[in-house]
Structures are given as structure tokens and as C-alpha cells.
């Protein structure tokens, strides 16, 4: 009786393990918006902070990364992207990649307290497992803080449905 119960226990555990490995497989990939989560917040009425949280095992290409503010009439100087990690690419030569967290400040050309601006990111990245994601374009509608108010709340980009070549 006891042995049979133990046998059943083992079977149950094996079944459980099987269920897990079946869903893991040899190649498991995150949805692009999870692999490269894009968010933004208003630091003050004329400064936007854009952030990419790149999941472990994934990277973004620096030269494919572009931020912009909508409407363009509000956009200030082009943002300065921090240097990435230099990687020697056989075809493209030296390329820079970002892993982990990337924070970029996007200045507006004038204060726009309380205005909701569009923060747009175009990005392209790959996974160490050996695949690349298509370029994606994400947009966040970000309300800027009022004059004198502190930094606003972080707004996450909504999961993109169809983001590329549009």
C-alpha cells in the first residue's frame, strides 16, 4: 500500500516535471515588449526620462535606437545616448549594444507643464539564444508634471500588437 502510494507520488512528480519541460523546450523567447520593456516619466515640465529595461540574455543595438517627442514642435536637442558595449561585428565592424537598464533624458525645447506628450522609441534587439527581433516602434502618452511639481509617475509602454514597419 505504502509502496504503491510512493509509486503514485513519483508518477505525479514526473508528470509535473514533464509538464514544465514541455513548455520550456530548447528555445524560449520573451515577447519583444517583455525582452525590451520601455517606460518613461516626466522629470519636470520640460524633461522626459525614457528607460529601457533589457531582460537578461537580451541586448539592443545602439545605432538602431531612436527616441523622439511628439509633437515634434516640442522636441529639444537630440538626446545623447550613453556609450554601449562595443562588439566586433564581422559585417558591420564595431557595433555598440546595451544590456540591462538604459536611461536617456529627452529635453523639450520649452516647459510644457501638464501637457501630455508622446514619447516614441524605435528599437531593435536580439537574444543571446541566437535570434533577432524585428525593429519595433513603441509610443507612450506621458503627462508632464505641473510647474514646480516633482517628477511624475513612470508610464510603461502598452504591449505592442503590431509594431514593425509601420
Amino acid at each position: 500500500m505504502r509502496d504503491r502510494a510512493r509509486g503514485a507520488h513519483i508518477i505525479a512528480v514526473l508528470a509535473g516535471l514533464l509538464a514544465f519541460t514541455a513548455s520550456a523546450g530548447d528555445l524560449k523567447l520573451l515577447e519583444p515588449e517583455r525582452a525590451f520593456s520601455f517606460s518613461a516619466r516626466g522629470i519636470d515640465s520640460r524633461t522626459v526620462e525614457a528607460r529601457f529595461a533589457v531582460a537578461n540574455g537580451y541586448y539592443l543595438y545602439r545605432d538602431k535606437l531612436k527616441f523622439s517627442i511628439e509633437p515634434a514642435t516640442l522636441a529639444g536637442d537630440p538626446p545623447v545616448l550613453p556609450p554601449g558595449k562595443i562588439k566586433e561585428d564581422e559585417f558591420f565592424g564595431k557595433v555598440e549594444t546595451y544590456r540591462g537598464d538604459l536611461v536617456v533624458r529627452l529635453p523639450l525645447n520649452a516647459p510644457a507643464p501638464g501637457t501630455t506628450v508622446g514619447v516614441v522609441a524605435e528599437s531593435q534587439g536580439c537574444a543571446d539564444q541566437g535570434v533577432c527581433y524585428p525593429p519595433q516602434r513603441q509610443r507612450i502618452a506621458l503627462p508632464l508634471p505641473a510647474l514646480g511639481a516633482g517628477a511624475g509617475a513612470v508610464v510603461e509602454a502598452a504591449p505592442a500588437k503590431r509594431t514593425w514597419f509601420k
Binding site: I11, A12, A15, G16, L17, A19, F20, A22, S23, A24, G25, D26, L27, K28, L29, L30, E31, R34
Partner: peptide, 18 residues
């Protein structure tokens, strides 16, 4: 076993395998 299977399916949803 059913719970494990469910969890497997659920977490499987988080990922996409080839």
C-alpha cells in the same frame, strides 16, 4: 500533476518556444 501542468502551460505562455 494537474496543477503542475497548469503552471507549465501558464508559464509557457510567458515564453514562446520554437
Amino acid at each position: 500533476a494537474a496543477l503542475s501542468l497548469g503552471a507549465g502551460l501558464y508559464f509557457g505562455e510567458q515564453y514562446w518556444r520554437g
